[in-house]
Amino acid sequence: MKNVSYLIILLFLGPSICWSQSSEYQINKAKKIEKSSVFTKIINREIKATIEYENEDIIAFVPLRLQAPVHLLIVPKKEIHTINEVSQEGTLLLGKLFLVAKKLAKEQGISESGYRLIMNINEDAGQSVFHLQLHLLGGKTLGPMVTQEK
């Protein structure tokens, strides 16, 4: 019932509250949030993944589409849709994500050469899975984070 209520609110009030997201994106986002995320399915072992790290709060695994020689997704087991939903109590969990990233970067041999940590939030950043995730990228020289304007 909670998810249905959320969907109704998003569909009717969303355009006025979330005016920066296209209506198509809002509808697609609401549909995806209604279902459990692909990451929750990995956490529950409903979908196979190459898991590189796991504890009671966090799981890290190799994504299907690699963006660099080293590319891991570091995901909280608690389903949080975007960073915009993180409360004060969630700050400890965010800190844990970054400590896991540091550990994995060292294990992958990229802690000294350099690596990038990325979270994509909503439409303009290209978020397509609505379960918070921290990308760990490295193993080569990475280009600019965004297209440089002249």
Rank of each mutant, 00 (worst) to 15 (best):
V129N: 02
L132Y: 07
E107M: 08
I47R: 11
I121F: 02
L11V: 01
T82A: 06
S36R: 08
S87V: 07
G139D: 11
I33E: 00
V38T: 14
L66R: 14
G143N: 11
V86E: 06
Q67V: 07
L7F: 10
F98Y: 14
S113N: 10
P15W: 12
L66G: 03
P144V: 00
Q148K: 13
I47S: 10
K106I: 06
S113M: 07
K150S: 13
D57W: 12
N28E: 09
I43W: 02
L73P: 04
K140N: 14
C18N: 14
Q21D: 13
F61G: 01
G138N: 07
Y6H: 05
E54C: 01
V146F: 07
L10K: 01
K29M: 14
H135Q: 15
V70R: 02
E85M: 10
G126C: 04
I80M: 11
I42A: 07
L117K: 04
L117V: 03
K96F: 06
Y115T: 04
V129K: 01
P144R: 04
E112Y: 09
P15Q: 12
L132G: 02
E107T: 05
N44V: 00
I8Q: 00
L66H: 07
F130W: 00
Q108H: 10
L93W: 08
L66I: 05
N84Q: 12
Q127M: 03
H135P: 14
L11F: 09
Q26L: 15
G95A: 06
Q21M: 13
N120K: 05
W19Q: 14
K41V: 03
